[in-house]
Every structure is written in structure tokens, then in C-alpha cells.
Design a protein around this nucleic acid. Sequence first.
DNA 1: GCCAACGTTGGC
DNA 2: GCCAACGTTGGC
Length: 156
Amino acid sequence: MQRFWLFKSEPDTFSIQSLAASKGKKTSWEGVRNYQARNMLRDDIQRGDGVLFYHSNTDPLAIAGTAEVVKSGYPDHFALQPDHKYFDEAASPEKPIWYMVDIKLVRIFKQPVTRAMLAEHPVTSKMVVMQKGSRLSIQPVTPAEWHAVHELAGIA
DNA sequence: GCCAACGTTGGC
DNA sequence: GCCAACGTTGGC
């Protein structure tokens, strides 16, 4: 069964435009170092799932478009590379600790769905990303929320 | 730039 | 196992 997720990214680090410019419009989603998010990457997120691509720490804050999971959870090998910024000395090939998935761009919204728009809508205003103190970089999204975001983006 | 919320660390 | 200190996230 297809499920839906929201992935946060700071556009200064990696934007949806970066994804569009990537080879095959695909990227691995490495560097998640939070156990709750790790569990979703490792256990729950499957090939074919939908991803809302959210731009955080920027202006305007917005869902910039969507992507599709093309590879489900596998070990984040960047944690094993001593010179890499995502290195974790506690990780090993036997116990990788951290996981990542691969995603592929579906579309960049012509009209990004801003946080202000999300806040105005009865369904999207309840999304995890809208809750105060919500810091998870990987979040579940309900089918109703997924649908409402597409309506706000002008996509039937 | 500020600061609240949250996760992690480490002393006890 | 508790909890204070600390670092990070991320909206405003």
C-alpha cells in the first residue's frame, strides 16, 4: 500500500531544484541522525511511496513539490566514512545504525504551497509539520493531507 | 538574531 | 534512573 511522507530540507543545503539538477532527478536521502526518523526510513518507507518536499529555514517556508521513493531503507554508508560530515564512529558494516532511502523528483509545484497556506486550510493546518516544536525531518502524511496539499498547489 | 522545543550526554 | 547542561532545529 502506498503511503505518504514529508521530507524536510534546508534549500541552502539541498533544494528541490538541486534534486531536479541531480543525475536522473534522483538522490539518496542520507544524513538523518534521529532515531524516530531512522525507524521510519528503515522500517516503513517503501518504494512507490509519495514524498512532500518541504523547504525549511528559508523564506518562504513551503512545500516545493513532490518526489517518489525509488529505493526503500538501506544502510547510510556515509556514516562509515571518517572524513564525511555524516560520519558516526559508532556505526559499522555489521551495525550500520543509520539508514537512508532514494527518491526521485515527481514535480516542482508551479505555485509552492507555503506554510501560510497550510495554516489556513482545515486539513493541512493539522499536519505534523505545523505542530509547534515539530523538529522531525521525516514525517508521516495522511492521504487526506496529501490530497489537500495537491489541491492547494492547483493540481486536481 | 532570538528563543522555545527537543534530543542527547554524562555525572551522580 | 534521574536530571541538569548542552547542542541543534527551525519558526518567527
